[in-house]
Amino acid sequence: MFTVTHAIEYAIGKQQGTDGRLSIEFLNWASNRAIQDKRDGGFFSDLWKGFEQYGICNEAEMPYKTDFDPKSQPSQAALDNARRLGETGLQLHWIKPWDPNRGLNDEQFADVKETLRKQWPVCGGFLWPRKQEWDGAVLRMASRDEVFDGHSVLLVGFREDPSQRGGGVFLIKNSSNGTQNGALSYEYVRNYMNDAAWIGCE
């Protein structure tokens, strides 16, 4: 939810020249309504279905709650605001459809970097360490038997660095790591990126 909401937030801000926060809570509700489910979070594709059908409102119209309430409903004002923000012509572009059994191939890896060069953040779903260990700001590489499916982060940039595994790092916005957003090595992304997509008006 956080990853897709932040990607939509960035795309609308880039399109309209605004910097407003959007409602994670509303997108969760919209996704559940669209796919007829009642759970916290979801796949990128499910969240996008929610956005396509209902849009997304400003954070102030439906603030985030730390405890998920499946009975939570948006106000009419939130629905009206969401419908307006949903009529922006945004599109979801897949770089890699969800597949937890393999990471990125060379073409997909290059596409992720090219998308970031064009200044569009990339939504990434990952196999993630059960026990996170960080070398400074960089998530430490883990073996297959040490990861689970999964966790999502927003890739917001990259940096070539021969001292890092794979030759560089991707900079990430990570909702579950407090104030430390951090980075993932190229090797980690190549091996453990389940799916990759970006949201934009191109």
Rank of each mutant, 00 (worst) to 15 (best):
Phe68Ala: 04
Asp145Val: 05
Lys65Ser: 13
Asp195Thr: 06
Asp195Ala: 09
Thr5Leu: 00
Gly178Ile: 05
Ser176His: 13
Ile12Leu: 15
Lys71Val: 10
Leu27His: 05
Glu187His: 06
Trp94Gln: 06
Phe158His: 10
Leu90Cys: 03
Arg33Glu: 15
Ser143Glu: 15
Glu160Lys: 13
Asp106Ser: 11
Gly55Gln: 01
Phe148Tyr: 14
Glu146His: 08
Thr115Glu: 01
Ala34Gln: 05
Asn32Phe: 04
Asp161Thr: 09
Glu146Gln: 15
Thr18Ser: 13
Pro74Cys: 02
Asn28Lys: 05
Gln119Cys: 11
Ser23Glu: 00
Lys173Tyr: 06
Leu47Thr: 07
Ser31Val: 03
Gly182Ala: 00
Met62Cys: 07
Phe109Cys: 06
Pro129Trp: 02
Asn191Pro: 07
Phe126His: 09
Gln73Tyr: 14
Gln164Ala: 12
Leu47Met: 10
Cys123Ser: 10
Arg33Met: 14
Gly42Ile: 02
Leu85Asp: 10
Gly166Phe: 01
Glu52Leu: 13
Trp29Ile: 06
Gly86Tyr: 01
Asn177Arg: 12
Tyr192Val: 04
Gly167Val: 02
Gly89Glu: 08
Gly50Leu: 04
Trp120Met: 10
Gln73Gly: 05
Val153Met: 08
Tyr54Ala: 10
Thr88Pro: 03
Asp80Glu: 15
Thr3Pro: 09
Asp67Thr: 15
Val156Pro: 12
Leu104Lys: 02
Leu47Val: 04
Phe170Cys: 09
Leu155Met: 14
Lys113Thr: 10
Ser185Ile: 03
Gln36Thr: 13
Cys57Leu: 05
Gly50Pro: 07
Gln180Gly: 03
Gln108Val: 01
Gln53Val: 01
Ala110Thr: 10
Arg117Lys: 14
Gly86Lys: 02
Val4Gln: 02
Trp134Thr: 08
Ser75Val: 07
Ser143Ile: 04
Leu47Tyr: 03
Gly41Lys: 00
Thr18Phe: 04
Arg21Asn: 13
Ser31Asp: 04
Asn177Lys: 05
Ser152His: 07
Glu146Met: 06
Ala7Thr: 00
Trp128Glu: 05
Asn194Lys: 03
Asn32His: 01
Val189Ile: 09
Ile8Met: 02
Ile95Lys: 00
Phe109Glu: 07
Gly55Cys: 05
Cys123Arg: 09
Pro63Ala: 02
Ala60Cys: 11
Leu139His: 01
Val169Ile: 15
Leu171Asn: 10
Val147Gly: 00
Asp99Ala: 00
Glu114Val: 04
Thr179Trp: 09
Asn105Ile: 03
Ser163Lys: 13
Ala77Ser: 14
Val138Arg: 10
Leu27Ser: 04
Val156Trp: 02
Glu9Pro: 07
Val189Trp: 00
Tyr186Asn: 02
Tyr192Arg: 05
Ala137Ile: 14
Gly86Pro: 11
Ala183Tyr: 03
Asp37Lys: 12
Ile56Leu: 06
Ile172Tyr: 03
Asp195Met: 09
Tyr54Thr: 08
Lys173His: 11
Asp111Arg: 12
Leu92Thr: 01
Trp120Lys: 06
